[in-house]
């Protein structure tokens, strides 16, 4: 008892400090660092470029021009998807600035300056001038954290817009994605536009992802294609957050793929 009391007299303060430090770090961990991102938001506020109405309109105009260029390049069957793309972008979305990136070297995240106060929820889809960028995985009152489709753990159901060949796109932690096809001999060419497929549960269908840059048809067990993103995530400065409810199950149960159960990110 005496030993215990002596120990307590000596180390009470230290123990208290350790308990407080660990407990507050654990609290941060439970709340997914919301307080930290709020602080980051307020501190970087002066250097965040103001996204006023004029700028928004200007950005929309640039976006429209970019889409027209894509349209001219594309004069083929992907025109239909392209119109869908315009439609999806014209849906009421929340425009947000990119104020930060992942807080370590292994994850591919973006931090946006719009959060639950502006109506952002977990699961919402984030698009940028190049097409789909990722989905919101955490929100605080004024910031949201986006898991990019370039993250190594990300899986998106996708298809070739020209030939409707299905596959799964996964990230590689750089500006290129890999698309694995389900078929042995897919109808795909260099330059084809890749869009999200209707089998994607976490993303709405027919959002553009990128273009085929290189095809490895001999790859085992399934052929693969390298996909070049239209806009590298490192240079994206602003994005649009669109509301989307992740589906619980795929809409068409008639065509089932063995890869179906692990084709989406968690």
């Amino acid at each position: 008892m005496f030993v215990l009391r002596q120990w307590w007299n000596r180390y009470a303060l230290k123990t208290g400090v350790v308990v407080v430090a660990v407990a507050s770090a654990w609290f941060m961990r439970i709340t997914e660092g919301a307080a930290l991102y709020e602080a980051y938001h307020w501190i970087t506020r002066p250097i965040q470029p103001d996204l006023n109405r004029e700028q928004v309109l200007e950005n929309s105009y640039i976006l429209e021009l970019q889409q027209r260029i894509v349209e001219l390049e594309n004069q083929n069957r992907s025109l239909r998807e392209f119109e869908d793309y315009v439609d999806t972008l014209n849906e009421p979305g929340i425009r947000a600035r990119v104020i930060g990136h992942a807080a370590d070297h292994w994850w591919q995240h973006l931090i946006l300056n719009r959060g639950s106060r502006q109506g952002v929820k977990v699961g919402h889809i984030v698009t940028a001038p190049g097409g789909v960028v990722g989905r919101v995985v955490a929100v605080s009152s004024n910031t949201s954290k986006v898991l990019l489709i370039t993250d190594a753990t990300s899986r998106v159901g996708a298809k070739v817009s020209r030939s409707r060949v299905l596959g799964v796109v996964r990230g590689q932690s750089n500006d290129r994605l890999v698309m694995e096809f389900f078929e042995k001999d897919p109808d795909v060419k260099v330059g084809d536009v890749i869009v999200t497929s209707s089998y994607s549960r976490l993303f709405p269908r027919e959002l553009p992802i990128g273009r085929v840059e290189f095809i490895d048809i001999t790859k085992s067990p399934a052929p693969e294609a390298m996909i070049q993103l239209s806009a590298p995530s490192s240079i994206i400065e602003w994005a649009v957050i669109s509301p989307f409810d992740p589906m619980e199950s795929v809409d068409d149960p008639k065509v089932s793929n063995p890869e179906d159960n692990h084709k989406e990110n968690p």
Partner: peptide, 21 residues
């Protein structure tokens, strides 16, 4: 070790808990 634990938890909070920092 305790400093590593506390800061690791904080970094987990800012990224994702798995793999843990």
């Amino acid at each position: 070790a305790i400093a590593g634990l506390v800061l690791g938890l904080l970094q987990d909070a800012m990224t994702a808990p798995q793999p843990t920092h």
